[in-house]
Design a protein around this nucleic acid. Structure first.
Length: 481
RNA sequence: GGCGCCGUACCCAAGUGGUAAGGGGGAGGUCUGCAAAACCUUUAUGCACCGGUUCGAAUCCGGUCGGCGCCUCCA
């Protein structure tokens, strides 16, 4: 399958070619675990999941590494502001380690609910302090660092290509326009590799290092861990768009300065989820979590469907109206699939990997179109439109539709067939019997034209959350979602 | 102040030179005792606005207005 991806590094669409044949090495910037993830954070992990699934769909084996930032970090490189982990710890009365563990678990619970495939390796920053120290030493040996005010800094003037990806023109940047410049820095864009001094009294997480007791700067963990698990050069590095200017720029500088070779081949960045007030933010207090959506009655997969509706490089406008429409669409999809399952006689092909044996020319051409879209920089919205084409097609048989739907759902990850057959199972057995009795009474009432009694029963069932359908072959029912 | 992105119907949203994907919602219809569901039809001569390039522009260029992001931990 042809694949092109938009590479932030040169801002162009590029043919995707891996360093090693049939294997993709991919690093995704993970969560900072001092609080719950909000749904904007989760959009980025969904984007990465789409990426991974499309790669696997096209036959690659994906080595997918994600970091867990469980080291507390200051709000800036300039040693000002409060450490988020420490703040969270102070507010909750738990230790920083407990906090990190708690929110790491919460994160993976959320991603699991969203059908996000877990990374091959999920690595915690605190387990890799020694790797970071070694990398800093390597930079030190090559003369890329200096120590000032107790902290070790990376000197960007020793790395001529600094800021190339972000397109930063250093002369024109107004450093300090919004924050105070750290006077220890020789160049305002220099960044800390290791802190030994913190203005906070009870820095809970400190480690010994050649530069004294302290903790690592924010950027170093991604360089150290990605190189440890994927090698000094690898295929894809992805994350949120906010990382381009600072985090990824600094990662490139320190990584390439250390190894002396090009580091990452393709940089992919997911755009933000936006609401009425602009970007999602945790600092505003109340923020939207997946659990909150669940409390409001949404299925996590409604949110997944919602995110599939927009391209990953476009900002996506969130509202509950928009989420409702995603939910309706997904439920309609399940309903259709459920009907196909009912009509389908022969499902032998469903187990087969190579579905081409079973599908018609028309099916093949729809599938080809689907592959073309998702291979063209992950155009999931277009992919979805092909799914709907299959669903609504007049010529294809139910069996074939199911094959195609199953195939496409490997990429969408909506569990369409599984959910559709679950939906058909209905309620618990005891309620089941009750419903059947009521339905029988209703059809008796209808047969003697006692419609007021019939409608009364329909209302009772309605209240019980049962939706009925009168069809030519009798009345069917299902639990309302 | 610098850099970047965006403005498509009631809503979400594709499309980046060849005459507007898809979903939701609305409307009409078929079916029905009535509903619901399902199915069918329909819903932007139009892509913020003004100029320009072109045989042809939502798509390219210039300008105007509006929105958003990054430059500070951030997905």
């Amino acid at each position: 399958m042809q694949m092109t991806l938009y590479n932030t590094f040169d801002r162009t669409l590029e043919e995707f070619e891996t360093l090693e044949e049939q294997v993709v090495s991919m690093y995704a910037c993970g969560p900072t675990v001092y609080n719950y993830a909000h749904i904007g954070n989760l959009r980025t992990y969904l984007f990465e999941d789409f990426l991974r699934r499309v790669l696997e769909y096209s036959g690659f084996r994906v080595k997918h590494v994600m970091n867990i930032t469980d080291v507390g970090h200051l709000t800036g490189d300039n040693d000002e502001g409060e450490d988020k982990m420490v703040k969270s710890s102070r507010e909750s009365g738990k230790s920083v380690w407990e906090i990190a563990g708690f929110y790491t678990d919460a994160f993976f619970r959320d991603t699991k609910k969203l059908n996000i495939i877990p990374p091959t390796v999920a690595c915690k920053a605190t387990d890799h302090i020694q790797d970071m120290i070694k990398l800093i030493q390597r930079l030190e040996e090559k003369g890329h660092t200096y120590t000032a005010g107790g902290n070790v800094y990376f000197s960007i003037d020793t790395f001529p290509d600094y800021g190339k990806m972000a397109g930063l023109r250093l002369e024109e940047l107004q450093s300090g326009a919004r924050i105070e410049v750290d006077t220890n820095k020789r160049n305002p864009k220099d960044f800390a590799l290791w802190f030994t001094r913190s203005k906070f009294e009870n820095q809970a997480m400190v480690w010994d290092s050649p530069w004294g007791k302290g903790y690592p700067g924010w950027h170093i963990e991604c360089s150290a861990m990605s190189m440890k698990y994927l090698g000094e050069q690898f295929d894809i590095h992805c994350g949120g768009t906010d990382h381009i200017n600072v985090h990824h720029t600094n990662e490139i500088a320190q990584s390439e300065a250390a190894t002396g070779k090009p580091w990452v081949k393709y940089w992919l960045h997911g755009e933000f989820l936006i609401d009425d007030s602009g970007k999602m933010s945790k600092s505003k207090g109340e923020f939207l979590t997946l659990s909150l959506l669940e409390e409001k009655g949404y299925d996590p997969l409604d949110y997944r469907y919602f995110c599939l509706g927009a391209h990953y490089r476009s900002q996506l406008q969130f509202s509950f109206d928009a989420l409702d429409s995603a939910r309706n669409a997904r439920l309609n999809l399940l309903e259709r699939v459920s009907d196909f399952l009912m009509q389908s006689e022969d499902r032998s092909g469903l187990q087969d990997q190579d579905i081409r044996k079973y599908i018609s020319e028309k099916g093949k051409s729809l599938l080809a179109r689907f592959q073309e879209y998702i291979g063209r920089d992950l155009n999931m919205p277009r992919g979805l439109s092909v799914l709907w084409k299959v669903i609504k097609d007049q010529d294809l048989q139910s069996d074939e539709k199911l094959l195609l739907i199953k195939e496409m759902d490997r990429v969408f990850g909506l569990s369409l067939l599984e959910r559709a057959s679950e939906e058909r199972k209905g309620l618990e057995p005891e309620t089941d019997a009750e419903v059947e009795i009521l339905l029988r009474e209703r059809s008796e009432a209808r047969s003697v034209r006692d419609y007021s009694r019939a409608d009364e029963i329909r209302d009772i069932l309605q209240v019980m959350g049962i939706e009925i359908k009168d069809t030519a072959s009798g009345t069917t029912w299902r639990k309302k979602v």
